[in-house]
């Protein structure tokens, strides 16, 4: 949180806390998800799915929603995160660190994704609009084929490490960590991302990014260091993705194949979630994740085989009827009411 200096009086610190009121509905959703999953074990399967989609949206939103730049290659950061976990476990499973290897994996995933984002940010963020979007596809695909072609990290055969986890932590612990705690971590990442989103929104960064989103050239002329904030949002978003990949893919599936983790489809899913909910809003990704995940889950369970045929028109209707997403539209409706304070 923001450190409150000695000279700041209590009134100001209340203002500071008030700034964070919009976190309440978001955290309420995540807590509710968690509690539902815990109280009704048969609901855990839905919760895991929703947690992933919410976290994906929330992490991606920091960059895509706030800057308006589309990073098609975003999935590369998740993929590298998953590789971070895989490599972490592979390297350290015999060190006797027990559960510690999970954290080595998460940190490694975070580092690898951040490192890539630094490189991509420095190079590709010089491009604008669709050129940037497609350059990032190049990075993602290039990375995938580099791993396969140069036979890095097991090449196309990937890494499978359930056995290593068993050796390091024992069977019982592995089962619980892989199928329960991995999903809890995902929720935590969603929560952290939400906090960062709001922190950025309520600080100078947010104003700079809004200016950038509206008109990049004008913002530059006004003397805003656009590049700095753009790269900051990019790196933050990427490092969240790295952790998300490490837990929701690396830890949960206990295997990594390059063709699976560099699948552009996940980026598109992230965009869909953010837009359904409302780009650049705090609550949007959570709402979009819930909507997207629930529709997929129930339609797939109810109408196996034709669920996407039903789902596609639903997306089209929402996008035409609510061009600013659910939360975006809601925000307009509640302007001037008490609720406004809680929705961002």
């Amino acid at each position: 949180m923001i450190s409150v200096g000695k000279s700041v009086n209590s009134q100001q610190s209340i203002v500071n806390i008030k700034k964070y009121f919009p976190l309440l509905p978001v955290y309420g959703i995540y807590l509710l998800l968690f509690l539902i999953g815990i109280i009704y074990p048969e609901m855990w399967s839905v919760v895991t799915l929703l947690a992933f989609y919410c976290a994906l949206g929330q992490a991606f939103n920091i960059f895509l929603g706030m800057t308006g730049y589309v990073d098609f290659g975003y999935v590369a950061f998740l993929g590298l995160g998953a590789y971070g976990m895989a490599l972490g476990i592979d390297v350290s499973h015999q060190t006797g660190l027990n559960i510690g290897i999970i954290f080595i994996g998460i940190i490694l995933g975070l580092l690898m994704a951040t490192l890539l984002s630094l490189v991509v940010g420095a190079v590709a963020l010089r491009l604008r609009g669709a050129y940037f979007a497609i350059a990032t596809i190049g990075v993602n695909e290039g990375f995938r084929y580099l791993i396969e072609g140069a036979k890095l990290w097991g090449g196309s055969e990937g890494l499978i490490y359930f056995r290593q986890l068993n050796e390091a932590m024992g069977r019982e612990k592995t089962n619980v960590i892989v199928t329960f705690w991995a999903d809890v971590f995902v929720l935590v990442i969603a929560a952290i991302s939400a906090f960062i989103t709001l922190y950025y929104m309520r600080s100078k960064i947010g104003y700079a990014l809004t200016a950038l989103r509206e008109d990049e050239d004008a913002a530059k002329v006004m003397g805003i260091n656009v590049t700095k904030y753009k790269i900051l949002a990019f790196i933050t978003s990427a490092s969240m993705a790295g952790m998300l990949g490490a837990t929701s893919w690396g830890l949960k599936y206990t295997h990594v194949f390059p063709a699976d983790v560099f699948e552009i489809h996940y980026t598109v899913e992230g965009i869909v979630i953010i837009l359904l909910g409302g780009a650049g809003t705090l609550l949007g990704p959570a709402a979009g994740g819930l909507l997207y995940g629930l529709s997929k889950y129930w339609l797939g369970a109810m109408f196996p085989g034709i669920q996407l045929l039903i789902f596609a028109p639903i997306i089209l209707i929402i996008i035409v009827a609510f061009p600013e997403g659910i939360v975006g539209t809601m925000k307009k409706k509640i302007k001037g009411t008490v609720l406004e304070r809680y929705i961002a």
């Binding site: 074990p41 997929k296 669920q307």
Partner: peptide, 22 residues
């Protein structure tokens, strides 16, 4: 009882859990 996983990992694990718990 069967579900369509759309060839995706997320849905696969989720539906296996559903099959077991529900």
């Amino acid at each position: 009882k069967y579900y369509d996983d759309e060839s995706k990992r997320e849905l696969t694990t989720s539906y296996i859990e559903r099959a077991i718990t529900v």
